[in-house]
Amino acid sequence: MSQSPNRLVATIFGAVYLLVGVLGLFVAGGNFIGQEGGLLLGIFQVNHLHNIAHLLIGAALLTAGLRSTPAAKGTNTTVGAVYLLLGIVGFFIAGTAANILALNTADHILHLASAIVLLGAGLALDKSSATARPAV
């Protein structure tokens, strides 16, 4: 694997989200969908749908990180944008029937933090010479 920052970020985040998805399956109990869920690490509320989302996102990030810099850059940007939206919307849907992923405040904050790192990497790192601005 090349020394691309985007590939490194995608690989690390992918592995972490896969691990979180697997661990969450053990604490979610019988809650597949809805506002209720088990607590992962004693703070992050998860249900099985939430865990499946983590597994899919982790797989996408890990695959992109292992594949190529453009794949990692695009996946980091896309997942980062989705997490930014989810982090913001999450505050508004908590306590409503729309909260089918059993999100809580800790989840919102973690999703926003993930969004900052993923979007930052995807949008700011690995600038190709074709898109770099010439020196003035």
Results as ranks from 00 to 15, higher is better:
residue 3 Q to K: 13
residue 4 S to W: 05
residue 5 P to I: 13
residue 5 P to M: 08
residue 8 L to N: 11
residue 10 A to G: 09
residue 11 T to V: 05
residue 13 F to K: 14
residue 16 V to R: 08
residue 17 Y to W: 15
residue 17 Y to S: 14
residue 18 L to R: 08
residue 20 V to P: 00
residue 20 V to R: 02
residue 22 V to I: 14
residue 23 L to G: 03
residue 24 G to E: 05
residue 26 F to D: 11
residue 31 N to E: 15
residue 33 I to A: 07
residue 34 G to Y: 00
residue 34 G to V: 05
residue 37 G to D: 10
residue 38 G to R: 03
residue 39 L to K: 12
residue 39 L to G: 06
residue 39 L to M: 13
residue 43 I to L: 15
residue 43 I to C: 01
residue 44 F to E: 06
residue 45 Q to S: 14
residue 45 Q to C: 05
residue 47 N to M: 00
residue 47 N to G: 00
residue 48 H to F: 01
residue 49 L to D: 04
residue 51 N to C: 15
residue 52 I to L: 15
residue 53 A to K: 15
residue 56 L to D: 00
residue 56 L to I: 11
residue 58 G to L: 13
residue 58 G to C: 04
residue 59 A to N: 02
residue 62 L to M: 02
residue 62 L to G: 04
residue 63 T to L: 15
residue 65 G to A: 09
residue 66 L to C: 07
residue 66 L to W: 11
residue 68 S to C: 04
residue 68 S to T: 11
residue 71 A to I: 01
residue 71 A to V: 00
residue 71 A to T: 04
residue 72 A to V: 10
residue 73 K to N: 13
residue 73 K to F: 08
residue 73 K to A: 14
residue 74 G to R: 12
residue 74 G to L: 14
residue 75 T to H: 09
residue 75 T to L: 14
residue 76 N to I: 03
residue 77 T to F: 14
residue 78 T to G: 12
residue 78 T to A: 15
residue 79 V to G: 03
residue 79 V to K: 05
residue 80 G to W: 12
residue 80 G to Q: 01
residue 81 A to Y: 08
residue 82 V to W: 01
residue 83 Y to G: 02
residue 84 L to M: 15
residue 84 L to K: 04
residue 86 L to C: 02
residue 88 I to H: 06
residue 90 G to L: 02
residue 90 G to D: 05
residue 92 F to P: 00
residue 92 F to M: 00
residue 93 I to R: 03
residue 94 A to Y: 07
residue 95 G to R: 03
residue 95 G to K: 07
residue 96 T to F: 01
residue 96 T to A: 00
residue 97 A to K: 09
residue 98 A to S: 12
residue 102 A to H: 02
residue 103 L to G: 05
residue 103 L to T: 06
residue 104 N to D: 10
residue 104 N to K: 07
residue 105 T to S: 05
residue 105 T to I: 10
residue 106 A to V: 11
residue 107 D to T: 04
residue 107 D to Y: 03
residue 109 I to R: 04
residue 109 I to H: 04
residue 110 L to H: 06
residue 112 L to R: 06
residue 112 L to W: 04
residue 116 I to G: 10
residue 116 I to S: 12
residue 117 V to L: 14
residue 117 V to P: 01
residue 117 V to H: 08
residue 118 L to I: 09
residue 119 L to P: 11
residue 121 A to V: 07
residue 121 A to P: 05
residue 122 G to D: 07
residue 123 L to T: 12
residue 125 L to A: 12
residue 125 L to V: 10
residue 126 D to H: 05
residue 128 S to Y: 00
residue 129 S to G: 01
residue 130 A to G: 03
residue 130 A to E: 15
residue 130 A to I: 12
residue 131 T to M: 08
residue 132 A to G: 06
residue 132 A to Q: 13
residue 136 V to R: 06
